[in-house]
Design a protein around this nucleic acid. Structure first.
Length: 899
RNA sequence: GGGUGGUUAGCUCAGUUGGUCUAGAGCGUCUGGUUUACACCCAGAAGGUCACAGGUUCGACUCCUGUACCACCCACCA
């Protein structure tokens, strides 16, 4: 016999091991079945699983389990991400701290550092693997991949080379976000802005006054820019020159007119520093102006600064200001200037814009093949969502997606770090020039040196949906083209495109958009793939999990963190999964706290105990549940019919809801069905005369329907109640949704439900403890048989000794009886009934009904409604009106009597 | 500055093309309960003018406009 309470800790690992060793997770590329594929967003190979991962795993596991049960060939590919900068930073910090090496890069060298990081990653990946298992994820471990493995490196190189040949990847001098602290470029998306209050200086520059918060960049300024229509400066012509006294002596300046200048800001005049400012850089490009570097990559001033050369910015700034002041060029200082400062998301170092030679992906060049047309990457990305090839849930993120693409600039893909896919480009310096080789493999011959940069981590992640499906062995054959690699990989041909990509909305731009970009580019020219595949057909974006008071959970604030593994240990993975999914809607943030998880633990326990009850019934009747065939599910009592009806209705609701990604709705439906209907109503009612075969089969179906939400407890219970010939629940077929029938039966058992409910309510309302006799007053003959057949039930549930069935309305009718259309319930209260109380409640009821009736009448008076609304709706309204009028009449009669 | 979303019971949130919602759930609160599965339970109750102001409609939590407050995203101004 089962224990009194479910023990997740003692169950989950055992069940998971059973699933895994049975091969239930493994997909078969040769299967005839329709495929259903999900690529797991690879967690960073650093550190621990957090709630973001947990919610992702729970959602994806539901999609996967549901579709597996529905008879699809499912594949869920797990993996980890090398997470370039993040990982390198973690390891460097570790070495700095533990080995007291201030600059590990310089001290250890490239090879050694990479070796150390790889070692660290190997350990972390083991942790991640076991944590993903703890969540119950039914992914195919035999296909686990890693973004930095050799096979994927081959594909990364193939894509790079191909894009280079198409002219989509180019090397150029561009302004980049330089992090002097980490000595690397940082992408726009990895920058955070912080509001700072700094002094704002106004200097005299020739005849103009210019403002700046960064005097240290002003050494090389030799252009003065103003708006062409600014009348204050109309006398100065574009291209005019003048000489101005400046920091290190006189300087020859040129006047430039450009619309980028805001005439209302400051004096409406500015000087520019193209090397260290994005806007200035663009202006300089447009106007074809000189650019000069002022600050070195180490963050120190260059020789152009004269006496200030070699100084750090913080040190130089006050000195520069005071020098200008001495020269009489300082007009004023405004101390309260509030502006945003760019900081690196990782390490919080100050970002210094610099011009650097970097690798870029051109998003505007129209050379991408897509459905036999030539588009730019930008256009393809827009096209696939516009035409519905990709759907985003919730829909509003499609708007944000388009908005993001509209503002998209060329993607800088090179990084000055060591951990990652190295740029597959080699240089050979000779006296006269530099030879360049761009290739999947290194060039022949001596003297070649590989580009030191690595690729943005999102470059390899962007290939994830298909790179993980390419056969590893094939990638060792260098004679195969990228196209061959795809077309000859059975997994790719069977499982791509993937069905749904599930991830947090916070990385829609980092990752989702870039997967679209890469995949459409790579597949667009392949005829066998109908000239293009998208990486996924549906994007499901979940919200962030926040703390109880709505804050973000952050590592720096451990008190706010809920560790999913702690929660699993305490309440079980099933409870954690439910608590993150039920009551959550896609794209919206949600709050999680322990009581919530405990609530779902209670639910899991409820399910456990309901099953325990069923097993006890079997035990008492000396029936082995394993021998009860599914075909034995024959309803006997009205309660059975009621349950059957509800079950069919739940089945179709839940199937529909999950298939359309409304997981919360399906979860809630199951929750209240199991608890309120099955346990509190049906099981209570069936005590005393149990229809065991029916009950066992009903429980089996419940377990099937809810398995994807709480896989562990259901699989465990399944082993106790399943039919001998069945296998594990994880592979059991999903119950076929059947359209609802049972109209008359439904009506009949509804009467039963209502009678019992009404009697209970009346007892509570009037504080009647023991009514020995209850009277059921029938307004309609047709319920007589129904009620008679359930006499025993009714007496037991109403705690009455006997009853009377009366066909006519009697004197002492009760307000509460209006709940029943065909039957009224009357408990003779032997003078206890408080007439005044009843009257008040009847009056209240009458007023409510009157208002309601008015509403319906208004509706039916409206021609537009009657003519245009579906006839079913109109009929419904007429019925409502009729029944309301009837109720009103009854109440008014009763009120007369009470007088 | 540009954009998106939210504002529903004490708390956390559902509410799918406007009409079975005369607004729901969980938690919390209160009342009652040793009913042969479960106190991680059972039976009930209280609690909301669905942010505010207009509009469209026979009818609005649901659609439109505006306001306030709260989030988030993007850009970043010398």
């Amino acid at each position: 016999m089962l224990e009194k309470a479910y023990d997740p800790a003692g169950t989950e690992d055992r069940i998971y091991a059973m699933w895994e060793s049975s091969g239930a997770f493994r997909a078969d590329a040769k299967s005839e079945k329709e495929s259903f594929t999900v690529s797991m967003p690879p967690p960073n190979a650093t550190g621990q699983l957090h709630l973001g991962h947990a919610v992702m795993l729970a959602l994806e596991d539901i999609f996967i389990r549901f579709n597996r049960m529905r008879g699809k060939e499912v594949l869920w590919v797990p993996g980890t991400d090398h997470a370039a900068i993040a990982t390198e930073n973690v390891v460097i910090k570790q070495i700095q701290k533990e080995e007291k090496i201030p600059n590990p890069r310089a001290k250890l060298g490239r090879e050694e550092l990479i070796r150390r990081i790889a070692e660290f990653v190997e350990r972390s990946r083991d942790t991640i693997r076991s944590q993903v298992r703890k969540m119950g994820s039914s992914c195919d471990w035999s296909r686990e991949r890693y973004t930095l493995e050799p096979a994927l490196n081959r594909l990364v190189n193939e894509v790079f080379v191909s894009m280079y040949r198409d002219g989509l990847i180019y090397r150029g001098h561009r302004i980049v976000n330089w992090d002097p602290k980490l000595q690397t470029t940082v992408s726009d998306d990895e920058i955070v802005y912080e509001e700072r209050k700094d002094p704002f200086y106004t200097f005299q520059y020739g005849p103009f006054q210019i403002g700046t918060s960064r005097p240290e960049t002003k050494f090389g300024d030799k252009y003065v820019v103003m708006h062409p229509e600014d009348e204050r400066y109309a006398k100065y012509k574009h291209g005019d020159t003048f000489t101005a006294e400046w920091i290190n002596g006189p300087i020859k300046a040129t006047i430039i007119k450009d619309k980028a200048v805001d005439p209302t800001f400051g004096t409406g005049v500015m000087t520019i520093t193209p090397w260290h400012d994005t806007v200035d850089f663009e202006l300089a490009e447009r106007q074809d102006l000189d650019k000069e570097q002022i600050i070195g990559f180490d963050g120190k001033l260059l020789p152009i600064a004269g006496e200030f050369e070699g100084m750090r910015i913080e040190e130089a700034r006050p000195k520069i200001v005071s020098k200008l002041e001495k020269k009489g060029l300082l007009v004023k200082i405004d101390e309260g200037y509030i502006h945003n400062v760019a900081l690196s998301q990782r390490g919080k170092g100050l970002i210094e814009p610099q011009i650097k030679e970097q690798w870029f992906i051109d998003v505007n060049k129209r050379v991408v093949q897509w459905k036999r047309r030539e588009l730019s990457l930008k256009e393809v990305m827009q096209e696939v969502v516009k035409t519905g090839l990709i759907k985003i849930i919730p829909e509003r993120f499609e708007k944000e997606y388009f908005h993001w693409i509209d503002n998209l600039r060329d993607w800088c893909i090179s990084r000055q770090i060591w951990w990652g896919h190295r740029v597959p480009v080699w240089y050979k310096k000779s006296e006269s020039a530099v030879d360049t080789h761009v290739g999947v493999t290194p060039p022949e011959g001596n003297g070649w040196e590989q580009d030191p940069d690595t690729l943005d981590t999102w470059f390899s992640s962007a290939l994830w949906t298909w790179s993980t499906l390419v056969d590893t062995k094939l990638t060792e054959d260098t004679s195969l083209s990228l196209q061959d690699l795809l077309l000859q990989s059975p997994d790719f041909m069977k499982f791509h495109p993937t069905d749904v990509l599930e991830t947090g909305y916070d990385i829609i731009f980092f990752w989702v958009a870039r997967m679209v970009l890469m995949t459409t580019y790579v597949t667009g020219s392949i005829a066998e793939l109908e000239y293009g595949q998208v990486p996924f057909e549906t994007v499901y974006l979940h919200g962030l999990i926040r703390t109880r008071d709505g804050r973000k959970m952050s590592k720096s604030d451990p008190d706010t963190m809920i560790d999913p593994l702690d929660m699993i240990g305490k309440y079980g993975a099933d409870a954690l999964r439910l608590s993150m999914i039920v009551g959550q809607s896609p794209g919206n943030d949600s709050r999680l706290y322990e009581e919530k998880i405990a609530g779902y633990r209670n639910f899991v326990n409820k399910l456990w105990n309901a099953s325990r009850f069923v097993l006890m019934q079997c035990d008492q009747a000396k029936v082995d549940p394993h021998t009860i065939a599914p075909s034995d599910m024959k309803p006997k009592s009205l309660a059975d019919h009621a349950l059957l009806y509800e079950l069919l209705s739940v089945r179709s609701d839940v199937t529909d809801a999950i298939a359309t990604y409304r997981l919360s709705e399906a979860g809630e439906r199951l929750y209240s069905f199991v608890w309120d209907f099955f346990c509190d109503w049906y099981l209570e009612l069936s005590k005393g005369e149990v229809n065991i075969p029916f009950l066992v089969n009903a429980l089996r179906e419940i377990l099937q329907l809810i398995h994807s939400y709480c896989p562990f407890v259901t699989e465990e219970l399944w082993s106790h109640v399943k039919y001998n010939e069945f296998g594990m629940l994880i592979q059991h077929p999903w119950p076929l949704p059947i359209s609802k029938g049972h109209g008359e039966e439904r009506e009949a058992f509804q009467v039963l439900i209502d009678v019992v409910t009404t009697v209970r309510r009346m007892r509570s309302d009037y504080g009647v403890e023991q009514a020995k006799t209850i009277a059921l007053i029938l307004h309609s003959q047709k319920y007589e048989d129904v009620l008679a057949s359930q006499k025993e039930h009714i007496l037991r549930l109403t705690k009455a000794d006997q009853w009377t069935l009366t066909a006519k309305p009697e004197k002492h009718q009760n307000a509460a009886s209006t709940f029943l259309p065909g039957v009224e319930v009357h408990i003779p209260l032997e003078g206890l009934l408080d007439l005044a109380k009843e009257k008040a409640s009847a009056e209240e009821e009458r007023d409510r009904l009157k208002t309601y009736k008015k509403g319906i009448e208004g509706k039916l008076k409206n021609k537009a409604f009657v003519e245009n609304a579906p006839t079913a709706v109109v009929d419904q309204e007429r019925e409502k009106l009729a029944s309301t009028e009837e109720k009103l009449k009854k109440i008014e009669e009763r009120l007369k009597m009470l007088k």
